[in-house]
């Protein structure tokens, strides 16, 4: 077998390994995609509008918020701002995940950031702990979710009225279960439990006193602040040599 053939085979292997990791994501997010399509049409969207929003914004929670505001005849800039606020947490993902993507060509990176969702971020961090993240693997994981997301949106928009009682099927609580799994995935990291505890308490307080969606960013910043404030060796980070004397204090 030529070297080229071997490379091609291992590349398609990486693609499907990524796609397989995304299977739970597709199961967990699929119902929301269909629900979004159904609600969108209910709020006066055409099937194309719903499909187009899923294909370009590609962020479940923010799309739901957007559709809700469309229904209330809110000013356009306020709709855009609300979607921006719900998606603001991605700034943190983007800052953290860049370390694993920086060795790719710029266009590949630009495409990868477009597909950077919550599960995609978590899967990429896990993959980065094991070794180098390949573009093929990343696209296998990301594109399988993206394609299923936009197809199911269109199906939901077409057949929205046929969606059965979502509460009895537990669809409304599938995502919290899935996100708990992602949190558990990082339990071997230094400071995991303190960060989870601080973020949990802070997000609940922010949810009560500031409101959604700011509880996400505020809760996350509290957990991150804990890791920043504690001396870096607690986080398993080796300090650089030329620190100031202040930072060497215990």
């Amino acid at each position: 077998m030529s070297i080229e053939a071997v490379t091609r085979r291992s590349q398609s292997g990486a693609f499907w390994r990524g796609a397989r990791l995304s299977l739970p994501v597709i199961i967990a997010s699929g119902p929301f995609s269909m629900l979004f399509g159904a609600i969108a049409v209910d709020n006066g969207f055409s099937v194309f509008d719903a499909f187009f929003m899923s294909a370009t914004v590609y962020g479940g929670a923010s799309q739901m918020v957007g559709i809700e505001l469309f229904g209330h005849q809110v000013a356009p800039w306020l709709i855009v701002l609300s979607i921006f606020a719900v998606n603001f947490r991605h700034v943190l993902y983007s800052a953290a995940v860049g370390r694993h993507l920086a060795h790719w060509p710029v266009l590949q990176q630009a495409a990868a950031y477009f597909l950077l969702t919550d599960p995609q971020y978590a899967l990429t961090e896990s993959e980065g702990q094991k070794g180098k993240v390949s573009f093929t693997w990343y696209m296998g994981a990301a594109l399988s979710v993206y394609v299923s997301w936009i197809i199911l949106t269109a199906l939901g928009a077409f057949f929205g009225k046929l969606i059965p009682d979502t509460k009895a099927l537990g669809i409304d609580f599938l995502l919290p279960i899935y996100f708990l799994g992602l949190v558990m995935d990082f339990r071997k990291r230094p400071l995991w439990l303190p960060i989870v505890a601080v973020s949990a308490v802070a997000s609940i307080l922010a949810y009560k006193f500031v409101g959604s969606p700011w509880h996400v960013s505020l809760g996350a910043l509290a957990g991150i602040a804990l890791a920043v404030i504690l001396p870096p060796h607690h986080s398993g980070v080796v300090p650089i040599e030329d620190e100031t004397e202040m930072e060497k204090l215990p």
């Binding site: 953290a96 949190v183 804990l226 920043v228």
Partner: peptide, 20 residues
């Protein structure tokens, strides 16, 4: 190092707020 420590905390911190 403190920024790196903060970035390492991102997954547990953000994903927790989607559950709590």
């Amino acid at each position: 190092p403190r920024v790196e420590a903060g970035l390492n905390a991102v997954p547990a911190a953000v994903l927790t707020t989607l559950v709590a």
